[in-house]
């Protein structure tokens, strides 16, 4: 089913009462109740959710790569087990989210094709490389930390399946963030080489993590409508500030510095003030010119293409057995 067009049957069924249905939709959203898959919803609401949930699902599965990069090299068996479980959780998050998107009338295979063709995006943060073990810690602490700040409000999203998926995802992300913090804490208080490795990783991941909240509010075109629909609850800049306020004391506890000379406590506002973000870099990475954009998509496409014969075999087997079962019933 195409992403954009509602089915003709659905259209015919709803058109007579569209105004009444739209009013009911607005009332439901305003009353903080949930929209469920069988409920009528404006087409633009459906499209916005499909785009956002698909992008979120794609981010989970592309995000498996930078950390998966270290599974075979994790420096202790305990760390290897934790990392395996974490990357597996991300695959699980991808599965819930694709399932949530499917309740809106698209299917996973179609969304994956759009990802592979570069027609749907994933979080730009995963276009940065993980050259050292400390990057696994920095991703857990900063990237998962930023993701939690972004995602906790989505547990109250007006669309039921997305909100419910986020409840479980946020619990697991919170665990991942603590694991990342623990990796960095151990490195920071370890040998001088380990401390330097941790500081280097934080230096490289800090600014990209701030960019994860998206462009500043005055340059974020879709935000107002998503806020009205209660898909989004807080603005990009509000969430970014919340993250900085959370991260700064944690960096102090880690014994690591954040690479921003302008970072300072502002007693008047009760917030940490931070320096200007390099939005040129953000837009370059978004446009496909980050260090790993091509690598991430190529890896995903290769796994998908090399797995095609396996999926075909499973389909052929299912068809043969359905046919045999049918023949037995007929006989």
């Amino acid at each position: 089913m195409p992403v954009t067009d509602p089915s003709p049957a659905l259209q015919a069924a709803v058109e007579p009462d569209e105004a009444a249905l739209a009013e009911r939709f607005e009332r439901t959203v305003a009353a903080e109740e949930r929209i469920e898959p069988r409920d009528w919803m404006p087409e633009a609401y459906r499209k916005t959710l499909i785009r956002q949930i698909a992008q979120h699902a794609h981010s989970e599965i592309i995000g498996m790569q930078p950390e998966g990069n270290w599974i075979t090299r994790a420096p202790s068996l305990r760390r290897k087990a934790i990392l395996l479980a974490k990357v597996q959780d991300e695959a699980g998050h991808g599965l819930y989210l694709y399932s949530a998107a499917e309740t809106l009338g698209v299917d996973r295979a179609e969304l994956l094709d759009l990802l592979h063709a570069g027609r749907q995006k994933y979080s730009s943060i995963f276009n940065y490389p993980t050259p050292t073990w400390a990057d696994v810690g920095a991703i857990g602490w900063l990237v998962d930390g930023a993701a939690i700040v972004n995602q906790v409000p989505i547990t109250r999203c007006s669309y039921g399946p997305y909100a419910r998926a986020m409840v479980r995802i946020c619990k697991e992300e919170s665990f991942h963030q603590r694991q990342g913090f623990e990796i960095l804490h151990h490195l920071s208080s370890g040998t001088p080489e380990q401390h330097a490795m941790a500081q280097d990783a934080v230096d490289r991941w800090w600014w990209p993590s701030l960019m994860m909240f998206g462009p500043p509010d005055d340059a974020s075109p879709n935000s107002a409508r998503s806020m009205a629909w209660k898909i989004k609850r807080f603005s990009n800049d509000e969430l970014r500030q919340r993250f900085v306020d959370m991260a700064v004391p944690q960096a102090e506890a880690l014994g690591l510095t954040l690479p921003d000379p302008e970072l300072r406590w502002d007693a008047e506002s009760g917030h940490y003030r931070f320096g200007a973000i390099d939005w040129t870099e953000f837009h370059e990475v978004l446009r496909g010119n980050g260090p790993c954009n091509a690598l991430r998509v190529e890896h995903r496409v290769r796994a998908h293409e090399e797995g095609a014969w396996v999926r075909e075999a499973a389909d052929a087997y299912a068809a043969k057995h359905a046919a045999r079962a049918g023949a037995e019933v007929a006989a």
Binding site: I61, M64, Q65, G68, I71, T72, K80, A81, L84, A85, V87, Q88, A91, G92, G94, L95, Y98, H299, R300, R302, A303, H304, E306, G307, A308, V310, R311
Partner: peptide, 22 residues
């Protein structure tokens, strides 16, 4: 098996192979 994570033919298999590895 751990090295196969992100390389499986479908997401369910990434989950399954990771489970077995764990």
């Amino acid at each position: 098996l751990g090295a196969q994570l992100t390389r499986a033919p479908q997401l369910e298999e990434d989950v399954a192979l990771a489970n077995i590895a764990l």
